[in-house]
């Protein structure tokens, strides 16, 4: 049994919504509403869900870039939600993040050498020539070289920028790396290269990843465990192979059936087409949040919220009717 590196317990983030003449709080957007999961050292936890389901808020809250409303995050045995500002800053060298859009995550007026060296300056007080060797080493590791040291972000391509962002995250040799859709702003060919690079780095340094994506194929390629998120909650968590072979939550099935299959004969496959739009997290549906779009919703689903329960073999699902509903899985059929 591998060691647990990150444990998230009942994490919540509510954003107050203000309105009216007096600017009073009229409601809350429950972007993250009671999420719990754990990540073992050296593995990748993939987080998948539609745009707007709270993935980004969740990972930022885990790193305390956004203050959580409630809940705890235990990192390497330390409750980081209880740390004071100074302690948290020192802790940050062990947990880093790569953002989605490399066009906005690098300071436009800083050169690559400054960007990558800055964590060293902050945590060890070294910079300039002293840091140069280390900066160059980490740049080479992400596939860049000496010729990029003096460049500004606007002189680099999207893929190169993302490599710089990865280098910045890696230079402190963190244990835990959050990857918030690190490839979705990039061209497909560049995506593949970056993903391969991330896998390589993980096996070389035994890194632990929290990998966020809305792309189920990317998640399948990267992850050891997968969590499926819907409207601020995890609806299903399982080891990757188990989840893709045996999805239990109707939402997971719908997600899997939406993956295009490059085979014209598979056109007749059964697909689950969801009705309607994702409801507003400002006013989530009663009971199970998925019930207005679920083909198998019952009275129970409309009134009671299902808990995330283990149904065997590290497979968790939050659905009242997971045993009764038909198993639809066209995803694995494409192999």
């Amino acid at each position: 049994m591998a060691r647990e590196l990150v444990r998230v317990e009942e994490l919540r983030k509510y954003f107050p919504v203000r309105g009216g003449v007096f600017h009073r709080v009229v409601g809350y957007v429950k972007a993250v509403d009671g999420v719990s999961f754990r990540i073992e050292e050296g593995t990748t936890f993939g987080l998948v869900g539609e745009s707007g389901c709270g993935k980004t808020t969740l990972v930022r809250t885990i790193l305390r870039l956004i203050e959580p409303t409630a809940g705890r995050v235990i990192f390497d045995g330390v409750d980081i939600t209880a740390l004071r500002a100074g302690e948290l800053r020192r802790m940050r060298r062990h947990m880093q993040i790569v953002f989605q859009d490399p066009y906005t995550s690098l300071h436009p007026r800083m050169q690559v050498s400054e960007i990558v060296a800055e964590p060293l300056r902050i945590h060890f007080g070294v910079g300039g020539e002293e840091a140069r060797g280390e900066v160059l080493r980490v740049l080479r590791e992400v596939g860049l070289g000496e010729e990029h040291l003096d460049r500004y972000p606007h002189e680099l391509s999207g893929g190169q920028r993302q490599r710089v962002a990865i280098a910045r995250a890696l230079i402190l040799r963190p244990k835990f790396l959050v990857l918030d859709e690190p490839t979705s702003a990039l061209d497909v060919s560049v995506q593949a290269k970056i993903l391969r690079l991330l896998k390589e780095l993980q096996s070389r340094y035994g890194l632990t990843y929290l990998f966020v994506s809305h792309n189920i194929l990317v998640i399948e390629y990267m992850s050891d465990y997968v969590g499926v998120m819907y409207l601020g909650k995890l609806v299903e968590v399982a080891p990757k192979d188990e989840l893709f072979k045996n999805p239990l939550h109707p939402y997971t099935m719908a997600l899997l059936s939406a993956v295009p299959i490059p085979d014209p004969r598979a056109r007749s496959r059964k697909r689950i087409i969801l009705k309607g739009e994702v409801p507003s997290p400002l006013n989530p549906p009663s009971g199970c949040r998925f019930h207005p779009r679920c083909p198998w919703a019952s009275e129970e689903c409309r009134s009671y919220e299902p808990e995330l329960v283990e149904v065997g073999g590290e497979h968790y699902v939050a659905c009242h009717r997971w045993e009764e509903i038909p198993r639809v899985n066209t995803y694995m059929a494409r192999r």
Binding site: R60, L65, I97, F99, H107, E118, P119, I122
Partner: peptide, 20 residues
């Protein structure tokens, strides 16, 4: 901007973020 959040993520303090 994201690059300010990125600065926080690498552990930069307020003074550093403000001036750098």
């Amino acid at each position: 901007e994201t690059y300010i959040e990125a600065a926080r993520a690498i552990g930069a303090g307020h003074v550093r973020i403000l001036f750098r």
